[in-house]
Design a binder for these strands. Structure first.
Lengths: 341, 341
DNA sequence: TTGTAAGCGTTATCAG
DNA sequence: CTGATAACGCTTACAA
């Protein structure tokens, strides 16, 4: 592949002139400009970004780090496509790299992006602690934003969804409809999101003076299969429930399947609410109610903030986003599943 | 951030020695090695990948180009997570870049990766023609593999799924079950995949001496909503059908919803088959049959081939993959929807 | 308006 | 075993 030097000699000018033509910086006469373009055409020249970025210490691209274990599910899709579209509109390239399976690898992925001199970085962390991230942000000058985790030190470098609040609201809604026996399916408990959602559920019960019963809480692992299994476990526990709050839509879908196989109709006998709002969920029959996670809004905010750090512009300070409850079918406290009858 | 030179002076050696220690190439005495490591620790040194890659013309990473309009749906998730996991196992980084909205931008994304000196590139094209891609492969020395498109010239640089064959098989299956009035929901017709699936359907009908009726073919756009709309259109056309073949699962799900809202039970009255096998599909009630697209197998093959081009190793030559038909509920020719009765 | 030359941070080839 | 030194391809003062 031909280099700038070759273009230069072919056009009968110096490298510097070619560089000027390409970057649009500095004065170049129209005549030589034309000559340079011609030479570029003829030689099929392509700039070497490594060299360019090395010389300038920039790259016009923004990195995103996500663990490959999260490369599934609607949440990730929403995150990725929003980020890409928004950045496309801002004229920058998004590059996604894999955070793999450990804090060390997640850290390495960030380093990789940093070492590539990405202009800015977005982290959707899975293994790194908030302290580790605070440290990284301290260490490097590139703007870094963290999604879905509340940093201790660099508060303006993170955006969170108030999972606890959303979960609280969903539970409160069910309580207000008259439900008193509400089962809960957790996510993987090594995830902060799962923990927050569980605590929102517990807090709402407490607020309504309803005891938290462990028999009504089943462990899930975010997947449809685990949601189905949770229902099986719940039924086996012989504690009646009239509603189920699942920590995500995939598990809610699995739960619905399991319920209907057990001969329990949804939503007549039991109301099911999930989180995240996957695109096919509204098409389930019977309808699944859902709590819509505001990923797109969060990503928008993240990118706006990154761009303003880069360009220096308006900086909003909204840090915490709340989910929106979407009720698709009537959620009633009606006659419910009583395995002990 | 400190450079290699700083580390070198701090350790009292030359840059070259530090480089040797880091790369493990060449002999370095244990004593100096230790000194270098100590200096690295103390200075928090990080290698500059731009410089390294510029000097070596490699990057230990593999690029993937996909248009952001495809950053949704299960197919993409499967593609991405397989690629990441497989590459993780092979010790390389996957980096995804956005092909955006046109052939030019798709081309630019490839150039970007090439210019970053990615070791190899995987393209899941949306806008580029096969000829354009054949040309690119000619032009650059980096190994490039194209997924889901049959190249004219570089046959060993592409992997395809036989969408026509799969669709043919699914239709054939329905025909063998006794179905004679099979409706078809297409994907977006600007996509080769959509065209192939439609032609497989038509060919199967023809093979069974059944006329292709346009009234039984509805246009979809890959989304659940468009699948639902297609059913509405089909019903409005007043042509009875006993089975529906939808060009993907999302549309099949939408179709099922629409059917049941119209009071038509699935699968008793109508059998529905989709393509691609999304994770929540098995949890739908009633069950959705599906044709599983072998994305993971294809990606595996792509990466194996890429790695062998890079390392020089065994090179298989399987080019064409066929989907697997997954029947989840009985597909019977039973009494069916007769809007004209 | 254009050319020269000094970086950018590595690697790699030679000598020593 | 280690140190100079020349690349790698581009940008950017500084001169001319």
């Amino acid at each position: 592949m031909s280099t700038m030097k070759e273009v230069a000699t072919k056009a009968g000018v110096s490298k510097a002139t070619v560089s000027r033509v390409l970057s649009g910086k500095g004065y170049v006469s129209e005549a030589t400009k034309a000559g340079v373009y011609k030479a570029i055409e003829e030689s099929g020249y392509r700039p070497n970004l490594l060299a360019r970025n090395l010389a300038t210490s920039k790259s016009e691209c923004i990195g995103l780090v996500v663990t490959n274990t999260l490369y599934n599910g609607n949440y990730f899709n929403e995150l990725l496509s929003q980020a890409a579209k928004k950045l496309e509109a801002k004229g920058r390239q998004l590059i996604l790299v894999d955070g793999k399976h450990s804090a060390a690898e997640e850290q390495a992925a960030i380093q990789f992006l940093l070492d590539l001199r990405c202009d800015a970085i977005i982290i959707y962390p899975r293994f790194l602690t908030v302290d580790a991230m605070d440290l990284i942000i301290d260490q490097y000058k590139q703007p870094i934003m963290v999604v879905n985790r509340k940093l201790r030190k660099h508060q303006s470098h993170c955006i969170c969804c108030d999972h606890k609040g959303s979960s609280f609201n969903a539970t409160k809604y069910l309580l207000e409809q008259g439900h008193r026996d509400i089962a809960f399916i957790t996510g993987s408990m090594d995830s902060p999101t799962a923990i927050e959602r569980l605590s929102g559920y517990k807090e709402a019960l407490t607020r309504f003076n309803i005891p938290v019963r462990e028999a009504l809480i089943a462990q899930g692992k975010w997947t449809p299969t685990s949601g189905a299994a949770a229902i099986t476990a719940l039924c086996a526990a012989k504690t009646p429930f009239s509603a189920v709050l699942a920590s995500n839509d995939e598990m809610a879908i699995g739960a619905m399947k399991s319920l209907s196989e057990a001969g329990i109709s949804v939503p007549e006998a039991v109301s099911v609410i999930g989180f995240d709002n996957i695109p096919t969920a509204p098409f389930l029959k019977p309808g699944l109610s859902s709590v819509k996670d505001p990923v797109s809004d969060m990503i928008n905010e993240v990118i706006n903030r990154l761009i303003s750090m880069l360009d220096g512009g308006y900086l909003s300070h909204e840090n915490l986003f709340l989910s929106e409850l979407i009720i698709r079918d009537s959620v009633s406290p009606g006659p419910y599943f009583k395995p002990t009858e």
